[in-house]
Amino acid sequence: MIPGFTLELILYSTALGLVSIGLAGLVLSHHLFRIVLALVIAEAGANLMLVLAGYRWDAVAPILTTLGEQPQMVDPVPQAMVLTAIVIGVGIQALAVSILIRIRQRYHTLDRNEVAELMDAEIAATAGTARDVSQEAPLGERPIPPITDDAVQVRGGRS
């Protein structure tokens, strides 16, 4: 066996890989359903990382079998937290899926960019304003503050 090639190393790289794959999918995907799947993967990696925080290679499972002298156990506190996190994760998934169903009912598409466009248009129509099409030149007459005399002095006179 190669020295340094331990179980912890494999598990940590798996957890970090799952989190990074999930985050990459979260950022790069175009389809909203796949974004939910990427969220599930990132959450699984976070759970693995949490359980790994209490792991010792020379310990046994935290179950009391005999009274008196106990062998070395892994830390049960992160495991209890992860138990809660798994269930909460399924709740988050169900919420995200219900939001996706509403989006599909309203906009008839699940593409990220198209949904953003349609939402922008709907917000502008509800507010009764024109759509903000450019980030550099926003719509609407924004009042430009008048240049004061001391600012003119600093800039070297009016041109």
Partner: peptide
Amino acid sequence: MRAPDVAMTEAAVGAGLSSLILALAVKRL
């Protein structure tokens, strides 16, 4: 990793219920 309770929950909830929800969502969407 000696976490049998977490493994049970992950197999039942993460692999069972979650895939059921996602598969029903695929159908519904």
